[in-house]
Design a protein around this nucleic acid. Structure first.
Lengths: 209, 209, 209, 209
DNA sequence: AATTAAACGAGACGGTACGTCTTGTCTTGGG
DNA sequence: CCCAAGACAAGACGTACCGTCTCGTTTAATT
């Protein structure tokens, strides 16, 4: 799975095997070219020939390491995203406020045009390609969802939430309406929307007295 | 908008203009071919050439009326879906039971392989094509969402739900986690899942006494 | 033959049946459109659709009466050429001078760009279409050759030429090098060329004393 | 010019540059397919798609190296014709007999149906395409004409012909009536015809005593 | 250092599908 | 009831990319 999307381990990855040699320079050039092109022409008109040309790289160098343009993009995107992500959600003790703060920031991020193209592209590609979507979800989405689950768990342990609540579904009640609106354009992504959403979801999760 | 996807109105459509002439026979043949092919080979390998050949139709007859294979499929899908849809959700007085019943049926429908291909295809295409996604949402999704909003409204008027609840967001809390799991394969679609989902959502919407 | 190129006789052509409605107006409009277009876009890009549009005529009206764009052009060209042609070559008593005068004029005519396009077009089309080339030769070329044959016959009867000379081949010795140079661009068409040609040909035809 | 029709020199052609690589196999297959097809279906219905399919070659491989089907055919024909051609006309001392012998053989050749199709095709295509006709004439016709000019020159130097004769025009007087009859079907191509033609032409070129 | 084997850039190859264009036939509706 | 307008089935056009396959040429890691 990860194998398909992120092929044959980067140099760092030890292993007894005599270490496949490859050009880190080409790798970077390909990522840059792919991200630049997907922003310029969109995913549909993104071609491997185009990426190769832009990166100053032979087509075979791409085909050698990635099975599809989607896989290239996923790696490119992933390597750009690996940086942040690892901190966990804030916990000031006020769950609603914390969720609203994070989701408001995410609204702004998702409304950024430059950010949208490759992300949408990957979702679209994954929709029809199960293997790709599993890589995408596992690599880029699941970690995000888990942050929310953890924050909810903390709140539950603090006695704020009903002990019977299903945390995973709770997180999805928060995140799915959000990403659905963005993905399918079923509604606007605004701060007001996330505020209402958080309130309405938390009403259902909170402990009754 | 609808104009692009569902071109130039069928003959019936009144209008002072002298009514664009076209062959209803070809139209039907194209829809059947498109739906059959998308099921057989998937969306990526669905080609306009293939549809034309299967339908026994010149390529130009497709290009004349639709801008893309996605638009053909949207129309095909829409014309197939126009049939049912118009009944409204059941209202037995037991909101939770009604929602669970409908969503369980929908789970089964969404787990049907034959059904998935064209639907996924359209979502994927729409992800990168705003105009298409607006047609898709307006024609196929919005009506569905509205059925849920209406059922919730009935419940609110019956005093079951809190008068302050945002019905639209309530409906999204029910439907988005569902379609998100299906679309991105972030989780399984089971009857148990929808049961828990309905319960947890309704806890947040119900009137407190 | 003539049937194919000049179909179904114009209205004038007697016949008990008065029926056959046929629009002389359309016929003229088609000829004008065809000649204008072949001059503007050349023969290869001349299309029947284009002629119909320019003439303000339905395509079917052209297909009904002519089998190909070449046939249309042949008729158009023929009907334009029928006018002149019928006078016979000058006969001042000086054969060489007469031939040079006529051929020099023809040089000028053949070097006229506007004139070339449809004529070349017909020759080219005829090259691969025997029936068409027979119509073309019979209607447009043979009459011209015969004028030369007649002029040579007059000279032979006047005792200028050897009585054994083959007049037809004599005319071809004059005309073919000329048209060959024009058609295949094997050499320049100049007044000097025709002068030398006439002299060299006549040396062979003249009576020896 | 030749460059356009015969692209990028065969591998042998020295040059410091690393020699454009291309498949001699494909080249030959294309020539064979083109010549076979033009004989079977004629030039108008000869298509590049058809050639590619018959040759087992991608369309692009043809488009990469030749600009049109006419250019393919010219190369194909040229490469087939390059073989013979290089011997010079016979010189038995009897000019008339030599010319008659060669022209009678050529009559037979030109009356051969298999031979006609591609040759006619090229002439027709060249008629409307100046560049092509220059290639065609330069590569296939001019060498032939020059053989006749040289034979006439030998005769002139042997004192058989008038020293003032224009050899080029003399050759055209022989060859053009011949090719004109063939090309435009203005008359039959028979041995009798060429005999008379040779006699009548030579009468005009021979030295007078 | 010299050797050697892979990965590299370049790009030709056999193909598929694109979207456009023309052809000749068929259909519709106004005059 | 003719005929312009134009939709239709068919299929060639030339283009863009696909994914595979040589070509020489780096480029390291092992000798």
């Amino acid at each position: 799975m990860a194998n398909k999307a992120a092929p044959d381990a980067p140099p760092g990855s030890a292993g007894g095997t005599p270490t496949r040699r490859y050009s880190e320079r080409s790798r970077q050039a390909i990522f840059e070219a792919a991200l630049a092109l997907v922003g310029e022409v969109g995913y549909e008109k993104l071609t491997i020939e185009g990426i190769a040309a832009r990166a100053g790289v032979g087509k075979q160098t791409i085909y050698r390491w990635w099975p599809s343009k989607a896989a290239v993009l996923l790696d490119a995107f992933g390597s750009a995203a690996d940086a942040y992500e690892h901190e966990g959600l804030p916990d000031t003790g006020d769950l609603a406020a914390d969720l609203k703060a994070v989701l408001r920031a995410t609204v702004d991020e998702f409304n950024d045009a430059a950010w949208q193209a490759p992300y949408r592209a990957l979702v679209a590609a994954g929709t029809n390609d199960e293997e790709l979507s599993r890589s995408f979800v596992g690599r880029l989405m699941e970690p995000g969802i888990r942050l929310y689950v953890e924050r909810l768990r903390a709140a539950r342990e603090a006695g704020e939430l009903d002990p019977d609540v299903d945390l995973r579904i709770g997180a999805e009640m928060l995140l799915s309406p959000f990403s659905q609106r963005w993905l399918m354009r079923t509604g606007e992504l605004t701060h007001a929307f996330v505020d209402t959403l958080v309130d309405q979801v938390l009403r259902g999760l909170r402990r009754r007295d």
